[in-house]
Amino acid sequence: MTIETLSMAKAINNGLRAAMKADEKVILMGEDIGPLGGVFRVTEGLHAEFGGNRVLDTPLAESGIVGTAIGLAMRGYRPVCEIQFDGFIFPAFDQIVTQLAKLTARHQGHQTFPVVIRVPFGGHIGAVEHHQESPEAYFAHTAGLRVISPSNPHDAYWMIQEAIASNDPIMFFEPKSRYWPKGEVDLSASGSPTYSSRVVREGTGVTLVAYGPMVSMALQAAELAAEEGTSIEVIDLRSLSPIDYAPVVASVQKTGRLVVASEAPGNVSIASEVAATLAERAFYSLEAPVLRVSGFDTPFPPAKLEANYLPDVDRILEAVDRSLAY
């Protein structure tokens, strides 16, 4: 076992480097990802190490980035695109949804499209409009895409490499509020299959499901609840398409209660999908309605209001209390 303590940004950087060393067809594309290393420095040093034909500082055109990545994939490359911020992905939405997602099926298996689209997402960074959004549900709703999101440096290091190794298009949502906190990364093994959810804290009273930026907050909530005698089991979904429901169903069969937390607006969301599926699969185990804790169904507000908008530990615990009150 080789353990290093890394930030998530550095863990992804190391994961990209490892993938680029392992396969010369892996190339990076994006805005400001070259000598600058990206606005979050996730690609720092890679341009110097691999050169401008492997780390492409592209024109500022998101549809162009994804559309040309598709052509490069047809040529045998494995492009990893960086979308600078969550809210900038929409110029590429058409290429992602009508092309990248559907081209594998359109080719009837004759051609694969191993394209990874990295998207720094979520709030808590006090930024301006379009820089703090959580658009993952749009992509999980789209057949042909896989959607995954790490919550910690270890998963980030491994999941980016697994995404690059996959022959399917993958949306890789990086929780930007978690870019800087450091955590232990086991460089010797991932420990989990790519599309698996995982119990990250065991408990008996309430099941709390989260992913990406909300996992650390869910763990804090569980810690505080434990001090008051409430045992919360926390599950990190890790993969949003497909979703690995088995650990969630098993947990709800044990606890009888489910709270789902995400930063994204709750209406027609990943949290909604988890709630609906658990209602189908664990109906007789539920002692209370499934509750969602989410961002409001408004545009992401100006930074001074983000603390009011985003779910926090208190809002999670409020939902836990409501669930237990049934």
Binding site: G64, V66, I70, G71, L72, R75, G76
Partner: peptide
């Protein structure tokens, strides 16, 4: 046209 351009870049 973007797929074609990407393919040509790969060439």
């Amino acid at each position: 046209t973007l797929h074609a351009t990407g393919y040509a870049m790969g060439l």
